[in-house]
């Protein structure tokens, strides 16, 4: 469904992606783990078009998408839940969700969007309770729910999640990962980037390990979880969720 081949990208002047190749098949949950500054966020931003790819190919559903602007890419079916949520903080919970479906009103119609709203409220009843509240006044966990709900309102075929557990209490992080599983049952393919390797490997079918802009390891999550190098580098440290924000 998604295939990256030898993709380079720059974050400012730093080359953040060095010839990345990876693929995501329909219906999969794929995790990318790695430490701070490994280029994980740049990877997602390059797929969603926020950062231009310099060289290499990105193919989504048989169509090259490198070079398209983000507002086109989301229409093709890739929606990103950005790092640190980036919700519209001065707007209401409802408005945030509606904006998630912004490009669908013309295409799918109001009723389809409202049905999807019901599903978001079903998986996150907390958001329904706070429907009229200003998004910026929500707790961190609720804001992450909102960001995830908003990203899903685009009805993506592929959902990109950037550090969904960042800054969340362990219980809340678990809730977010549990819901990600439910989204997959709904037919959404997920590419998740995480510092919390434990949680990510527990959720994903397959995973990539990134270091300094390159993929250094890949495989089934269960294999990686038992890989000595991964255990030493990521799982040992990652039993407590990292609290320091990444750049």
């Amino acid at each position: 469904m998604l295939k990256l081949e030898k993709v380079n990208a720059f974050y400012g002047r730093i080359q953040a992606l060095r010839g990345i190749s990876l693929h995501v098949a329909e219906g999969e949950i794929v995790a990318v783990i790695g430490s701070n500054g490994a280029g994980k966020s740049t990877l997602l931003n390059t797929i969603s078009g926020m950062i231009p790819a310099r060289g290499g190919q990105i193919v989504f559903a048989g169509r090259p998408i490198a070079g398209l602007p983000p507002e086109k890419i989301v229409r093709l079916g890739i929606s990103q839940v950005p790092e640190r949520r980036q919700i519209f903080s001065t707007m209401s919970v409802m408005d945030n969700l509606i904006l998630g479906a912004y490009h669908r009103y013309g295409r799918d119609g109001r009723q389809a969007v409202e049905r999807d709203l019901d599903f978001v409220f079903e998986i996150f009843p907390r958001l329904q309770e706070r429907i009229g509240q200003t998004a910026g006044t929500l707790s961190g966990g609720e804001q992450q729910m909102l960001a995830l709900g908003r990203g899903w309102m685009a009805k993506p075929r592929l959902l990109l999640m950037d550090e969904p557990s960042l800054g969340l209490a362990p219980l809340m992080a678990r809730e977010i990962f549990r819901v990600s599983g439910r989204l997959r049952e709904r037919g959404t393919t997920i590419l998740v980037v995480e510092q919390n390797a434990h949680a990510a490997l527990a959720l994903a079918d397959r995973a990539y390990v990134m270091e300094e802009g390159q993929v250094v390891l890949e495989g089934k999550s269960s294999d990686l979880a038992s890989d000595q190098r991964v255990q030493k580098a990521y799982l040992g440290k990652a039993t407590t969720p990292p609290s320091s924000p990444s750049p």
């Binding site: 983000p70 507002e71 989301v74 980036q86 919700i87 904006l99 490009h103 908003r150």
Partner: peptide, 19 residues
């Protein structure tokens, strides 16, 4: 609402498909 979203967070608005 899209106009306001652009004012609050332009990058996020772009991710929502707002040009």
């Amino acid at each position: 609402k899209a106009l306001r979203a652009c004012a609050v967070n332009r990058r996020a608005a772009q991710l929502m498909g707002i040009n």
